[in-house]
Amino acid sequence: MTEDDVPTEWLRAVLPLAVLAVVAEEETYGYAVAQRLQAGGLGAVKGGTLYPVLNRLEAEGLLTSSWREGVGGPGRKFFAVTAAGRDSLDRRSAAWHTFTERAGGLLPDPRSTR
């Protein structure tokens, strides 16, 4: 297993938070979110995985969506973060960092121990 090859459970755990963070950066649509996640190093996220996450975040009131006409193309569904979404992102990000630091403290670090 290489450093970039992470188990899918890890991705499933962090994906809702990562998607929320991407939409919080700027109002955006599904494909652009997938590209941003890939550029961020999380690998290619399929549409079949991404849209259920976006819809769940919307159902929880953390995002809102609206269809806009594309330039000469089909419409796109744009997602924007709500105030509750921003609040949730702050709290969950803090919790995530605490969690990963604690987990990291239990694990051997091959980079420091050779």
């Binding site: 549409g47 079949g48 849209y51 089909p74």
Partner: peptide
Amino acid sequence: GEIVAEVESHVADTGEDPTEAFG
């Protein structure tokens, strides 16, 4: 309607086959 439009809008952007992208 929403779910179907999401699929079509997404594959229009990526050029993927819908089955490949969504199962």
